[in-house]
Design a protein around this nucleic acid. Structure first.
Lengths: 201, 201
DNA sequence: GTCTATATCCAGATAGAC
DNA sequence: GTCTATCTGGATATAGAC
């Protein structure tokens, strides 16, 4: 009895996983409103009605994905700040890791694109807007803090730290979008090109 | 008689202008598929059916806008290349102008976003995809050519010129998207932050 | 040129059978 | 848990009057 229950739960969890994963791919590729429920279901080889067994709507799926995306990026920022590295090393590490991720981890680029999309459009659920409003500033502020520290120790250029953080993230986002478009063919640029915006000499 | 004809033509031209302009704003804000014909018509205070007097579909409007967007950007690139400036001056000029445009010209940012969107999604008409395929490489190649020249005269860093061009445009695009989101509040970063990626010392 | 119907279609969502 | 069938709504597109 408990066995069946566990098994069912496992099937259910796996289905939710599949739906999320497939929806992420499609949303990143076509956007929320251009993605149909049937796109998701047929890609998974299941019926359209079954999706509604797991999610109330495609918007609900979207909101969950946005939540995951910010958990990932904000978690990574928190982790980065806590590392025993100099500010310059932190920025360098972040850029190298982000570029590597873009090149190697398909989902990473997709999550980035999802956030970029979500922030760039009004055509998303209010709940998603709330999450963005609440979470989106964190990565900018985290990087700005590191930049400011680096200015104190003389390793980072003396521009407004917020501007540096802005350029940091918009550059990464621009690359993420490019990657999402060109997919396989994308080769990340040398990390030093980007780091030279921030480091003295 | 000819008077009436002229006047009618003028009204017609103006309506097309209005529709294009409004559609650009909405597409940039919500994307093609989330924008309804009624969004455009009601923003202009005209009936929904009237749009079809001027355009066959919202896709047709989109295709025309994409064409205009590439005319602008590619025309600007051609113009830039033809100027009597050193490679370094060209890059510097381009970045300053692009940042100024993003900050001041609402439509400029929208056209950029439109291209970014259009290249980043599969949910657009085939005709638009054809235009992108044909036109999108030009700005990258133009900037790559200028970078390569600058490497010959020793003013530009010795990375792969294509990588430099990639970073150039993806950084601008990232900023354009940020601007499109944050609108009024956007203040462009110092141009020197960006130029320092490309210039020696 | 413009508007008000109206027809058509398709995606979202539900209900009930297995 | 999954499917098929069905309902519903909204958006596209057309037709005809002014």
């Amino acid at each position: 009895m408990a066995r069946n229950k566990d098994l069912n739960q496992k099937i259910k969890d796996e289905r939710r996983e599949q739906i999320l994963s497939q929806a992420l791919m499609l949303y990143a590729k076509k956007g929320l409103s251009a993605t149909k429920i049937t796109d998701i279901s047929s890609a998974l080889g299941i019926s359209q009605g079954l999706i509604y067994h797991y999610y109330k709507s495609k918007e609900e799926i979207f909101v969950e994905l946005i939540g995951i995306a910010f958990d990932r990026i904000n978690g990574a920022c928190r982790w980065l700040e806590s590392q025993p590295l100099s500010p310059k090393e932190k920025i360098e590490f972040a850029i190298r890791e982000l570029l590597k991720l873009l090149e190697q981890d398909e989902n990473a680029a997709r999550y980035h694109l999802l956030i970029a999309q979500a922030t760039a459009t009004e055509a998303i659920p209010d709940e998603a807007k709330d999450i963005i409003k609440k979470e989106n500033t964190f990565p900018y502020e985290a990087i700005a803090r590191i930049m400011a520290e680096g200015q104190k120790d003389g390793s980072i250029k003396e521009y407004d730290a917020k501007e540096l953080a802005l350029v940091f993230w918009t550059s990464i986002n621009g690359l993420a979008i490019y990657k999402a478009v060109h997919g396989e063919k994308f080769k990340a640029p040398a990390a030093n090109i980007l780091t030279s915006m921030f480091f003295k000499e």
